[in-house]
Deep mutational scan, measured.
Amino acid sequence: MATDAALRRLLRLHRTEIAVAVDSAFPLLHALADHDVVPEDKFQETLHLKEKEGCPQAFHALLSWLLTQDSTAILDFWRVLFKDYNLERYGRLQPILDSFPKDVDLSQPRKGRKPPAVPKALVPPPRLPTKRKASEEARAAAPAALTPRGTASPGSQLKAKPPKKPESSAEQQRLPLGNGIQTMSASVQRAVAMSSGDVPGARGAVEGILIQQVFESGGSKKCIQVGGEFYTPSKFEDSGSGKNKARSSSGPKPLVRAKGAQGAAPGGGEARLGQQGSVPAPLALPSDPQLHQKNEDECAVCRDGGELICCDGCPRAFHLACLSPPLREIPSGTWRCSSCLQATVQEVQPRAEEPRPQEPPVETPLPPGLRSAGEEVRGPPGEPLAGMDTTLVYKHLPAPPSAAPLPGLDSSALHPLLCVGPEGQQNLAPGARCGVCGDGTDVLRCTHCAAAFHWRCHFPAGTSRPGTGLRCRSCSGDVTPAPVEGVLAPSPARLAPGPAKDDTASHEPALH
C-alpha cells in the first residue's frame, strides 16, 4: 500500500513536468492505449483535445483523470512512461527518471493478473537440437547421386540401376557391380574402391570401400567397409609401409569409374585409389579445392560414357583410347591431361624469361682521411668538412668512354686558381681547403699541381719545410723540376691526363 501511495503522490508531483515534456501524442498516448491504461473513449478524447488546445494541455488533463483511477493503472502508467522508446522521444523525461526514488519498484506484477504457477513436473524439458533432418536429407541425396545420367557406350558392359529405396527402410541396399565389389548404403556420403591386398588381414578377392557413415545421432565417422563389417581407420595404420605414394595433400579420389555407378572395369580391371599401398590413418579432407572437384561422367573428346580416367587438374575425364597418344593402361600417381600440362608450361616460361635485376654498384670503404676530388669540390665554400675520421664509401662506377685530351690552356685561363699578391707571391683563392683534413686555415699551394695542403698533414714525420718551391706529398717525388717562383700557373702540358701512381689516385688537379 505504501508503494501505491508513493506512486500516486509522484504522479501528482510530476504531472506538469510530464505534460510539458510530452510534445507529441505518439508514441506515449498510443502505448498507453495498447497496454489498456487508457480506454478507447479517453484516447479519442485526448486526441481531440490535443487538436484543440495543444499537446501539453491534453496530457495534463489525461494525467488528472489518471489520478482518479486505481493503483494498478497508475503503476502501469509509470512502466509505459519509462520505456526506452519514450525516453528517446521525450528527452525531458530523463530528469524525472533520475529523480525517481530508488525504493519504488516498478517491476512488480499487476494485482489480480498474476499467472498461475505451473508445477515443475509438468514443464517439459527442453529438446536438444538434433541433426536428424540433415541425416534424412543426406539419405535422400545419396540415391540421386547414384542414378545414371545416360546410357553407357556399346563397348562398356557395366550397366546398373540402383533400385529405389524407401527412406523408412534401415537395411542396406547393395548393387552387384562384379568382381566382388559392393556399394555402400544410402547413408554413405562418398565411396572409393580399395584393393584388398592393401588391407592387412583381408582374405580372398574381397575389396573394401572407404566410406563416411552418417549415424542417426547426427555425428559422422569415417571407416572402411569390408564385406558386411565396418573398420575404423586406426586398424589399417601401417607405419612400416615404404610404398606409400601419396598425392599432394591428398584424400582418396576415384580416378576410374563407370558411368552411372562406381566400380571396377569389366574384364577384371581393378579400380585404383589416388594413392597406392596401405590406407593412410588420417582421412581428413584435403585443403586443395581441386581434389574436391567432381569430374564429368562423359569423355571430353567423344562425349560418351564408359570407363573413364579423370584428370587431377580439371573436371574433365577421358577414354584411354581417346587420348593423344592413347594409353594402354592407367598410369600410377597423379595424372593430368594435356591442357593442364600446357597451362603449367605456359606459367613457367614467362618466369624464366623475366630479366634479372641489375646488381647495385659495389661499394668499397675508403680509409679515414681520404676523399675523392669530387667530394672536395662539392663541399660548401668557406666551411670545414665535419666528421673527417668517419669511413667514407667510394662507389665503383662504370668507366666513362675515352675522351680526347684536354686542349692547351693559356696562363690567363688559370687566373682564378691563384691570386698574385703585391710581391708576386701566389695566394690561395677563397674557399681553398686541405685535401686531407678539410680545413682551409693557413693552407699552402703546391707549386707543381696548384693543390691546397697543410705541410703537417702531408709530411707528418716532421720534415723541414723548404723556403721556396713548396710541393705536396703527391708531387714531391716527381722528377720534373719545380717552376720558378712567381709564375702564375704550371705549363698547360702538365694538365694533360697521364698515368698516375697508386698513392696519388685520389689527388687529381682540382679547380677552386
Rank of each mutant, 00 (worst) to 15 (best):
G263K: 13
T183N: 12
P129N: 08
D41Y: 15
M194R: 06
S196F: 02
G155P: 01
D36S: 03
K253Q: 15
I209P: 03
K243Y: 00
D70H: 01
P129L: 02
Y90W: 01
L29Q: 03
K259M: 13
S156H: 10
A246T: 08
S153F: 15
K159P: 04
L11T: 01
C223R: 07
R89P: 00
A19W: 00
N86G: 01
E216S: 14
L175W: 15
L28R: 03
H30C: 04
L32Q: 00
K133M: 01
L122D: 14
Q94L: 06
R149H: 12
Q189G: 04
D70R: 03
S135C: 07
P143S: 09
Q212I: 00
A170W: 15
K159G: 08
G260M: 15
K50N: 15
P101F: 01
K165M: 12
L255T: 04
Y90M: 05
A134Y: 09
L29H: 01
A144L: 12
V192C: 08
K50Y: 00
D34R: 00
K243E: 04
E229L: 02
E136A: 12
P95G: 10
K165L: 03
G219M: 09
L255N: 05
L210C: 02
D105Q: 00
D41I: 00
G201V: 09
V199E: 08
L128V: 12
L81I: 02
G54T: 00
P109M: 15
L49M: 05
N179M: 15
E229H: 03
T16Q: 00
L106C: 01
P252C: 07
C55I: 13
H30N: 04
T130P: 14
L177M: 15
S64D: 00
V38K: 03
F236C: 09
T72I: 02
P109F: 12
L10H: 15
E270I: 05
A25C: 04
D4Y: 05
I209N: 06
P148D: 07
V80I: 15
T72F: 09
L255Q: 10
L10C: 00
L158V: 07
H35E: 00
H14V: 00
E171G: 13
D23F: 03
A73C: 05
S195M: 03
A186D: 11
R8S: 03
A141H: 12
L66F: 01
P166R: 09
V22D: 00
K159M: 07
L7W: 02
G112W: 14
L28I: 05
D84C: 01
Y90R: 02
A144N: 04
E17K: 04
K83W: 02
Q44C: 01
I209C: 01
A265W: 05
E53I: 15
A271E: 11
T3I: 01
A261I: 05
I96S: 00
L66D: 01
S135M: 01
P148R: 09
E88I: 04
K131S: 02
R15K: 00
D238V: 13
E229T: 01
G240R: 10
Q173D: 10
L49R: 10
P126E: 07
D23P: 00
G91S: 12
C55T: 15
D98C: 02
G197D: 05
P129Y: 02
S241Q: 10
P166A: 12
P39Q: 03
P116H: 12
G269W: 15
H48C: 06
R15P: 00
T147P: 02
P162L: 10
F59H: 03
R139F: 15
Y231C: 05
E137G: 05
R190A: 08
L7F: 00
P176A: 14
K114C: 11
Q172A: 06
E270D: 14
D70K: 15
F215K: 01
S153Q: 05
A170C: 13
E53R: 01
P252L: 12
K222R: 11
L63V: 05
R12I: 00
Q108N: 05
S249H: 04
A141W: 12
E136H: 12
P266S: 07
P148A: 07
P124H: 09
S169G: 14
A19F: 02
P119A: 10
K83M: 00
G112L: 14
